[in-house]
């Protein structure tokens, strides 16, 4: 019984992590049809930014909750600047090229940014543990849960709800939906697609840095954390359906729960879980769980 509870609890925490790192990626793919490898850099910049902010803020006996907010805002500020620079400075030059070529552009930028991180922060690693320590824990039987993890699940759920509402209820969200469905028709009806692209990419970048910022307290912020996140986020998005927010949420939940069950019941297969789930889902739903098949044009 406790194991079953633990599987659900751990699964939800892992799903929250996956959703937070995948949501920006799927948004950018949905609107711009760009599989953005630079997303890994956004995550890393977010984590490094949050660690820097934590270094500035804590040890000054200021309230902890504001410190966490400061970390997130600092990191998302970095995402805003980085997103603007990349979209206006580089991606703008390659729109209209083959999708794969654009993937490679983002890969090239990712390689460059990996070394930019070393230039800015050096090769040492950073901790940003203060918010997690301050959050404390609660006991459920023999199981101790971190309040920070519970907060992570709440943040992910709130983000899912917010993106859902933003897409359905706001003017910009409806414009995005139009562009997602048919770029050319949207442009023909006077939608400023260029602006939509810029805004989407910047939001995607900020969501990427947000993912890094909220994970920073749990991990050691060190070189190479971005690489690990890329494939994880790709897999979640492919399972859910490229460009679908609901898909990313469901994909994250499936992988999260499957992984938690594996760790508790069959630790041997943990390594295969994410790719196994991805291969299985794609074998039966070639376009992922939540994408409609593209109409075939003659």
């Amino acid at each position: 019984m406790l194991t079953a509870f633990a599987i659900v609890a751990d699964g939800l925490v892992y799903a929250a992590y996956l959703f937070l790192v995948a949501v920006g990626l799927t948004l950018i793919f949905g609107v711009m049809k760009i599989l953005n490898v630079t997303h890994g850099s956004f995550y890393a910049f977010g984590a490094y930014g949050a660690a820097t902010a934590a270094g500035i803020y804590f040890d000054r006996s200021l309230p902890d909750a504001l410190g966490f907010l400061f970390m997130i805002l600092f990191a998302m500020g970095i995402g805003l600047i980085l997103g603007l620079i990349l979209e206006r400075g580089i991606l703008r030059l390659v729109y209209g090229k083959d999708e794969v070529v654009i993937v490679l552009v983002t890969y090239a930028v990712f390689l460059i940014l990996e070394d930019v991180i070393t230039l800015i922060w050096g090769p040492r690693s950073y901790g940003a543990y203060q918010p997690m320590v301050a959050a404390g824990s609660i006991d459920v039987g023999r199981l101790t849960l971190s309040n920070y993890d519970i907060g992570l699940v709440i943040i992910a759920a709130a983000l899912a709800l917010a993106t859902f509402l933003a897409l359905k209820r706001t003017r910009f969200g409806r414009l995005l939906t139009v562009v997602i469905y048919d770029r050319e028709t949207a442009a023909a009806f006077g939608v400023n697609v260029t602006l939509v692209y810029t805004v989407t990419f910047v939001i995607g970048a900020m969501l990427g840095t947000l993912g890094g910022a909220v994970m920073a307290p749990k991990i050691s912020v060190t070189l190479g954390i971005g690489v690990e996140v890329i494939v994880l986020a790709f897999a979640v998005v492919a399972i859910g359906g490229m460009g679908s927010i609901e898909g990313a949420l469901v994909g994250a939940l499936i992988v999260g729960l499957a992984r938690a069950a594996a760790v508790h019941l069959m630790p041997q297969i943990e390594l295969f879980i994410i790719y196994g789930v991805m291969a299985l889902v794609l074998a039966f739903r070639p376009f992922g769980l939540f994408t409609r098949a593209e109409p075939r044009k003659i």
Partner: peptide, 28 residues
């Protein structure tokens, strides 16, 4: 037989999943 049915990014990701499964087997 599996991959030939896929195009674009799904082809890319499915082939990635297959190579990563081999990676996992070898690591084990």
């Amino acid at each position: 037989f599996l991959l030939a049915r896929y195009r674009e990014i799904f082809f890319a990701m499915l082939s990635l999943a297959l190579s990563m499964i081999l990676y996992g087997v070898l690591v084990k």
